[in-house]
Amino acid sequence: MKSLIFDIYGDFGHFKKYYTTSSPLTFSFPPPPTIKGMLGAIGGISKTEYLKTFRSDKCKIAVRILRPVKKIRMGLNLINTKDNFWIPFKKKNHEARTQVKMELLKDPMYRIYFSHEDDELFNDIVEKVRNHHNVYTLSLGLSEMIADYRFVDVKDAFETGDVETEISSVLPYKYILDNKIVFEDGKKYFKEKIPFDMDEDRVVLDYSDVVYEANGKSIRSYVSKSWVIDDEYVMFF
């Protein structure tokens, strides 16, 4: 299948973990629903439509960490905009602002792999990425964290069977056979549960356990299937 490959990066990023509230923590990479939002911004697909357009039975997405994951804590002032007032002044029984400690990603950079069964839509996204012509502003999770991106290539991805190989992308745990990961010196392995699929009402339909290497290095594993692009093995969600 044809796959669009492009890189996305920025100064800061935040992909909120679903189980944090007052002190938001961030995933180390954008989960699939977030990447679909990025594709929607590039293609000009509205917030109410992109989850339908990029349904999991229609498209495939893989993500690779290109820069070591760096996380910092920063205090952000949230302005009270209730009751139709915007100027940050105190009002009876209301605080003008609330300071929240947030975990942010510093200098994040990812490689996105994208395929879609709709050739017309796929080609439109390819041309927009190639020409750096996104319709809506692209961000890394939050609207304040503006992102940039660059076209890499369009290549064929071929599905493989059972194989032990070096996986370059984030690795969904469900594809690992017999829990077989070859742990190597000098690599930092992490496992997280991420939202995998959402419906059009933004209700999470499914979660996925994933394994990734925090410095962007490959993971050697025995997997039930993978996709090879040139000499690189990636895992699509």
Rank of each mutant, 00 (worst) to 15 (best):
P32H: 05
K52L: 13
L78C: 07
D83W: 03
T34W: 01
T34D: 03
S46P: 03
T48K: 15
L78H: 10
L78D: 03
I42N: 00
L76V: 13
K52E: 14
N77M: 05
I45T: 06
Y19D: 11
T21N: 13
Y50S: 03
S28A: 15
K36Q: 15
D83Y: 04
F29E: 12
K36N: 10
P68R: 09
K47T: 10
I79W: 01
Y50F: 15
K47C: 12
T48I: 08
T48A: 15
N77C: 11
R64W: 07
R67Q: 15
P68W: 02
L25W: 00
K82I: 00
S46W: 01
C59R: 09
K47Q: 14
F54Y: 14
F54H: 13
R64D: 10
W86Q: 07
D57F: 08
K60W: 11
I72H: 02
S23T: 10
L25G: 04
A62D: 09
T81V: 00
C59H: 11
R55T: 11
Y50G: 02
I79L: 03
P33Q: 08
S46F: 01
P32S: 11
F54T: 05
F85K: 09
L39Y: 03
S23H: 12
R67S: 14
V63A: 15
S22D: 10
R64M: 12
S46C: 07
V63N: 13
T53I: 14
T21S: 09
T20Y: 05
K58T: 06
F54G: 04
A41F: 06
T20R: 06
F54W: 11
K36A: 12
G40N: 00
L51T: 10
P31R: 01
N80Y: 00
G40R: 03
